[in-house]
Amino acid sequence: MLQENINNENNKTLKTKIFRYKYFIFILRLIIGVIFIYASFGKIIAPNDFAIAIKNYDMLPYSLINIPAIIIPYLEFFAGIFLIFGKFKIGSSFLIGLMLIFFLIGLIQAYARGLDINCGCFSLDNPNSSSDILLRIFEDILMLIAIILIFLYSYKEKLLAQKNG
């Protein structure tokens, strides 16, 4: 009887824990999703400005800058949408994680080389661009941590679902 009670208690705490996590992860998904959708708008409307921002990072040959300038904004948009609505959570969080890692590499190398650039992160016409690279690196790392949590949670959730059903 006592043992049963303890088991029940354990189950309850486990459930509330998962329950709590669920909401925490949902809020994270909402935040990251909204940020990515918001960040994609300016770039979708003006791909040329984004192409110039990519060129200024000096990481790609000039002939190849337009393709990511066309595709990345839409990838941000759809990954954000799917993340919010909970469809393809694993894929979209994985892709957002990859993008954040690429952005981080770009930002860090630009900062290290002292490139005076517009980061191309959100608004494409920020004149005081070079000074806020450190802030962007910090934001990128925060988002990366959040998206890793989302990814791991979604992946585990999927594994659990597969086991149970």
Partner: peptide
């Protein structure tokens, strides 16, 4: 899942870029 999201993004990007008056050429 990644592939699905990528393919959807590429299809929309391709047509979105054509329809966008400020669209750019691939190269």
């Amino acid at each position: 899942e990644s592939l699905i999201v990528i393919i959807i993004a590429i299809i929309f990007a391709f047509f979105g870029n054509i329809l966008n008056p400020k669209g750019i050429s691939l190269f």
